[in-house]
């Protein structure tokens, strides 16, 4: 085995254990002795892809492609780097070249599908991702890109099936668990979404959107609480004409239902839920304010129960309006922040 071959193996190994800086150094040191070694250049390019340095990674991949024009991996990596640089037409051409050179290579199909998805050619990306999954049914990344493309096309059931397939193959796949939780949130299953996000966080706490997505779950819950509060207010106001006793009975039922729902939810949620919910509330002022306002609504119901004055429930209209405005405000802020 030559020095260059040994270095290639070493870089691949370091990449596997996510020691990218060391891997880059090893590759660059070895390239000093053999600057045209395509395999070394490709390992370096792959490391730079992981380090998200597409301009340098592209240079390495292009040098490898120049040394070995028939090397499928060189064109695959070129495509991926070009795609990250936003040069989509060139990226698609490079990806196509890669699958032309190795039509039965699942990673070539996977790379091409990634490039196609980023360039917005979702139908082509779907067909290519399916081909990648056919070529290697246990290739988790193929199912992940398949799920993402299905999701982008609005095929929720198919996306869900792909995420579930990933979790069957790799039960601790944090990204799949997270994305499935996002699907649950979109499907108005807030409890399942929160459980999924907490699981994903326990599996891989480095996912940076976790707290934000827990916040999204809380916004969804706040929406339902608002609707519930409006319904309860209507019921209390309707009972106001029947005297204080009727008002008290209806309000007591409302409060019991609210407390009961809270207890059940707490029991069903994992033990990490409180800290995650607190973190989400701390991260978003508008969300915290929204829950404070909803707590004020709860307080108004307690006041009605104590005084028997059903008319006080009118105040909850104001509470509902403020809570709604806070929700709208949060949406606007989120849109403004979106790149």
């Amino acid at each position: 085995m030559s020095d260059a071959e040994r270095a290639v193996e070493r870089v691949a190994q370091l990449r596997q254990v996510r020691r990218y800086t060391e891997a880059e150094r090893t590759a660059r040191d070895a390239l000093v002795g053999d600057p045209q070694d395509a395999d070394l250049l490709l390992e370096l390019s792959a490391v730079l892809l992981s380090l998200d340095r597409p301009a340098e990674g592209l240079a390495a991949a292009e040098a490898a492609a120049a040394a070995e024009p028939e090397n499928e991996r060189a064109h695959r990596l070129r495509g991926l780097h070009l795609s990250r640089l936003g040069r989509h037409p060139e990226a698609v051409r490079a990806g196509y070249q890669s699958v032309t050179l190795a039509p039965d290579e699942p990673y070539a199909a996977l790379g091409y599908a990634t490039v196609l998805r980023k360039s917005g050619r979702l139908a082509d990306a779907l067909a290519t991702a399916q081909r990648a999954a056919e070529l290697s049914p246990t290739l988790v990344d193929a199912h992940l890109i398949l799920a993402e493309v299905h999701d982008a096309l609005g095929h929720r059931a198919a996306a869900r099936a792909s995420y579930q397939e990933i979790l069957r193959l790799e039960p601790d796949h944090a990204v799949a668990r997270h994305d499935l939780a996002v699907q649950d949130l979109r499907g108005h299953r807030a409890g399942a979404a929160l459980r999924g996000l907490l699981d994903a966080g326990a599996l891989d706490p480095t996912i940076d959107v976790l707290v934000g997505n827990v916040g999204a779950v809380l916004w969804r819950v706040a929406y339902f609480l608002r609707l519930g509060m409006i319904g309860a207010t209507v019921a209390v106001l309707a009972s106001a004409g029947s005297g204080p006793a009727a008002v008290r009975v209806v309000t007591a039922l409302v409060l019991l239902a609210a407390v009961g729902a809270g207890v059940v939810a707490r029991r069903r949620l994992p033990s990490a839920a409180p800290s995650a919910l607190v973190a989400a509330l701390r991260a978003e002022v508008l969300l915290a304010l929204s829950y404070l306002v909803l707590a004020a609504g709860f307080g108004i119901f307690v006041l009605v129960l104590v005084t028997g004055l059903g008319g006080l429930a009118v105040l909850n209209w104001a509470v509902a309006i403020v809570a709604m405005l806070l929700g709208v405000g949060a949406n606007l802020v989120r849109r403004a922040r979106r790149p």
């Binding site: 966080g201 326990a202 480095t206 707290v211 800290s275 995650a276």
Partner: peptide, 13 residues
């Protein structure tokens, strides 16, 4: 520390 915050929030049961 940003990651550590997530660890404490989600993975310190």
């Amino acid at each position: 520390f940003a990651t550590a915050r997530n660890v404490v929030t989600f993975a310190n049961t």
